[in-house]
Design a protein around this nucleic acid. Structure first.
Lengths: 214, 214
DNA sequence: ACACTCAGATACGTTACTGCATCTGAGTGT
DNA sequence: ACACTCAGATGCAGTAACGTATCTGAGTGT
């Protein structure tokens, strides 16, 4: 867009830029064709480079993929933190809590596919699995703390339960979005958000009523 | 095992047997390495044959994969139907309903991986997506009917809600199992079943209390 | 402005997969 | 038992992908 100012880039800038373009292209293509179904050449070509550029920036496809997933997750963490900072009232926090999950699970189709692809890959490669688990833990622990704080504010506290609550949130969100993408006519967006709301309202009414006994 | 009786097979039998072995091998390997990460040669070799055997039995990897998924789903449908037939009391039906989802979503690791792989593939190939959607519909409609009958028995009926309920069941189950496989220490089996129970109890208590108004 | 350096392109050799064509031997009909 | 057929093995050629090595030209130091 603002291509007119693209004069005279320093070497570092240039390198960083192609790296970025490669990552961007990879995100798109891997989401569409899967990791194994994507060749290095595909990525490089889509980014507008040759394979040489790829090898100059990444050791292997795996390395690029890990970088990519990390970047994506960090971005999500940032988004979530930002959202959390704004909240004030209990109702708002509850509201946000419901919307946070889908945001992480993948706000758009490509993000969802990418993250799920990463999870599938993790289930097959123990080494990658370990790294991905660490990344997820960051997000989850963050959210668990939020939930605990919220519970405290609501007058009940049970860490085990908070953990389980977050699991339900993420699990449900993931499953619902998958169904939505698989069959949007049968499971429209509205049905997904309704289901999310339904479960959360019920779970939290349990909170209020029985003080977190599960 | 009972290899001693493996004398004199008729041609049809022999063919069917290798076909079966190929499918079996494919299920294992595709679960472990993904569809794109599995070569025809891998499948044939694992089954104890050469590539020739593969091509004599299947046109392409895609055809084999579809056959495989169909077979898996049909087996699941059978299992579920069987389970349904046994039920008598409302409590038992409710109980079963909770256990049905994980069974379909993938009782063992490989089954889960295979089905999820199929879903990922479906999201990328419209043609395959259509077929998979049809397969899923069979299971889902079946279950929706069961839920409706159960609701009727419990004195409330709302078809939209039944559909949503099934969506929640399958979605949650899928997400929970994924988390369990990704990080069994953090999300042990017990936590998965507890979460499943928690949500279902709450949802169905809603049923009882508000007669299905959502 | 001149030599230097490094990001990225091009060229090459190697490996792996696929589909097709051909071959072989075990089941089959007479 | 003899000729036949077809399941499955083997051989071959074409393609796609990878990693490495070498080349080129645009940023950089003096």
């Amino acid at each position: 867009m603002i291509k007119l100012m693209k004069k005279r880039l320093t070497r570092q800038e240039s390198r960083a830029q192609t790296r970025e373009k490669l990552l961007e292209a990879a995100a798109k293509i891997i989401a569409r064709h899967g990791l194994a179904g994507t060749s290095i050449e595909d990525i490089a070509e889509t980014a507008g480079f040759s394979r040489g550029a790829f090898h100059a920036n990444f050791k292997s496809k795996d390395e690029l993929f890990l970088t990519l997933v990390e970047k994506q997750m960090k971005a999500t963490i940032f988004e979530i933190d930002e959202l959390h900072a704004v909240t004030d009232s209990v109702e708002e926090k509850l509201q946000n809590l419901r919307t946070v999950y889908p945001r992480y699970t993948g706000s758009d189709r490509d993000t969802f596919l990418l993250i799920t692809e990463a999870q599938m890959y993790a289930l097959r490669n123990p080494r990658f699995g370990k790294k991905l688990r660490a990344l997820f833990s960051t997000i989850y622990d963050d959210l668990i703390q939020s939930v605990e704080r919220l519970q405290e504010q609501m007058g009940c506290k049970d860490p085990v339960y908070a953990k389980q609550l977050v699991l339900i949130g993420f699990g449900l969100s993931h499953g619902l979005i998958l169904h939505n993408l698989m069959d949007p006519e049968r499971y429209p967006d509205s049905m997904v958000s309704d289901s999310m709301r339904l479960v959360f309202d019920k779970i939290f009414s349990l909170e209020e009523m029985s003080l977190g006994i599960h």
